[in-house]
Design a protein around this nucleic acid. Structure first.
Lengths: 125, 125
DNA sequence: CGAGCCAACTAGGTTAACTATGTTGCTCAC
DNA sequence: GTGAGCAACATAGTTAACCTAGTTGGCTCG
């Protein structure tokens, strides 16, 4: 499938496509590969690809046109309601928070795994 | 099965839940009915309900906690219109990630703290 | 009485199949 | 050469089924 992180596959694909869009690898107006093609690319089932595209659609990053394809939205035609322009900073802050929390979580979960021999079952994927 | 408008069912349900949340009918912190219950309420299949909840999740309006339920996010600190698309979606997603990680961290830290001292059964109810 | 197991709920993820609808390009008849 | 029709491919929506995983509370058994 995709990878073996805790993150579900359809989000991984959505992340990847989102990164490509933001990185300019997929320019506004250009179509994404078809769902079947994406399914092959990511070695995923059609369903997860459709889910991933659905996520990007609800995020407004892409626009699906039935019969034609899924196109990258022109970000300039609908500028986000910048709540003061600090959205970039906010994103950075949130990212940092995620990193921090992830690290703490990993550490604490490890502690828990090693210190507790009384809990049955608990395992990883 | 919802109505006969052109709008797909899963979006109708998402709209309705979103309206209830914004209207205060579903206060922050309160759980949504379970998916099976929602499916009965709207006379829809489980799949469309799950899709609807998924939409609200990616919008950051609700947070699903496995095993417990889907809870309304604190909307006062979170009024972004979903149409924003660009960074709004990413911010929402990051916020959701932070909340999720925080929840997991809190849970796991509590486990760690209690497991070193005593063995609790249940905590709150 | 208490610790632990278990059963019943919960959400989440994945897959597959089917239908509907729209677009596009090709072919073929005239 | 032009137009109609059709086949192939596209997204979109819906449904159903199965599995994982977390939470909770009751029940049993030592």
């Amino acid at each position: 499938m995709v990878k073996n992180t805790g993150r579900p596959g359809y989000l991984q694909i959505a992340d990847d496509l989102r990164a490509q869009i933001r990185g300019g690898s997929l320019a506004p107006g250009t179509p994404l590969p078809s769902t079947t093609r994406l399914a092959e690319q990511y070695d995923a089932s059609l369903s997860v690809v459709k889910l991933a595209v659905g996520v990007l659609r609800t995020e407004g990053l892409v626009i699906g046109q039935q019969g034609k394809g899924v196109f990258v939205r022109d970000t300039t035609e609908q500028p986000p309601p910048a709540g003061g322009g600090d959205t970039a900073g906010e994103v950075a802050e949130l990212r940092a928070a995620v990193q921090d929390l992830s690290a703490r979580l990993a550490k604490v979960e490890e502690q828990l795994a090693t210190s507790t021999t009384r809990r049955p079952g608990r395992s990883s994927r």
